Simulated assay, not measured.
Amino acid sequence: MAIATAPMPVTERRPAWVAVVESAKHGDEAAFERLYVEFGSMVHGLLLARVDRASADDLTQEVFLRAWQRLANLHDPIAWPAWLATIARNAAVDQLRRAPQPGTLPPEAQLPATRSDDAGIRSEAEQLLQIIRELPHAHAEPLILRLVEGLSGPEIAQRTGLRPAYVRVNLHRGMKLLRARLHGRVNDNEGVGT
């Protein structure tokens, strides 16, 4: 005779970084440095979706400084990715408010007229970033995290606290929008010289 047993409850495995967040909350600077290594690319990518590269580089440091200073306010360590992402997005918005007035060129647009191959590639990359920044943030953020920061879809979901299905759908839609915009620009440029 078989004994009926109740199914074992499924417990969700806690990500390893939760313990690191808890240690950092108790003042462990080395733990916080590990969080920086683990989540630095996510923060940089979220910033890059809104501001130029130089600003994103500087703001990444600022975001982690703010997070360190406010870490005691984080009540549930499992909320760390979403909390950190909110700090990053707010830092980008603050930066845009302080940005130069319309009509002034951002640093990436102030390139010399003659370029070496490396500068030309850098200029093309900045143009592509600008096209991505023009997409809705729900699409731009995962695209930059994937294409620039090199995170996979599951890594984006884990580091941002977003549902994997949400990330997957927005990456797909974002790529579709990006292709359409790039195709439109290629067609626009083809007609210029004729």
Rank of each mutant, 00 (worst) to 15 (best):
L147A: 02
E33I: 05
L171K: 07
Q95F: 10
L178P: 07
V148M: 11
D58K: 02
S41Q: 13
A140R: 02
I144G: 11
R181P: 02
V43E: 01
I78E: 14
N73Q: 15
R70I: 01
L35G: 11
T86Q: 15
A49M: 04
L59F: 07
A138C: 10
E134D: 15
W83P: 01
E108D: 06
A113G: 05
E62I: 11
G184Y: 07
V43K: 01
A49Y: 06
A67H: 10
R179G: 09
V93C: 00
D52I: 02
G174P: 04
D117F: 05
A24P: 02
G161F: 00
T194F: 07
P9R: 15
D58R: 01
R115P: 11
A82L: 08
H44P: 01
K176S: 11
W83H: 05
V169K: 01
E126W: 11
T194D: 12
R13V: 15
E62G: 06
L151S: 04
G40T: 03
L46F: 13
T104K: 13
M175G: 12
A85M: 04
G150C: 03
N90P: 07
E149V: 06
V20H: 08
A125N: 09
M42C: 08
D57F: 06
R13E: 14
L145D: 02
R159D: 01
W83F: 02
T194E: 12
R133E: 03
L84A: 09
S152D: 10
L162D: 01
R173N: 04
Q110R: 12
A4T: 14
D52C: 07
S23C: 07
I3T: 13
R98F: 09
L135M: 04
L96G: 06
A54M: 11
A24T: 12
E12T: 13
L74D: 03
P136H: 15
L135A: 01
E190K: 14
V63P: 03
Q130R: 15
H44D: 02
R98G: 03
R66W: 09
A113T: 07
R159V: 01
E12H: 14
Q158L: 12
N170F: 00
T160K: 00
S116A: 07
Q101N: 08
P164E: 08
V169E: 03
N90Q: 10
L171M: 03
S123A: 14
R185V: 10
L48C: 06
I156W: 04
A157Q: 07
A91V: 00
A19F: 02
A67P: 02
R97Y: 14
N187T: 14
L71W: 03
Q61L: 08
A6H: 15
M175D: 13
F39P: 08
H137W: 11
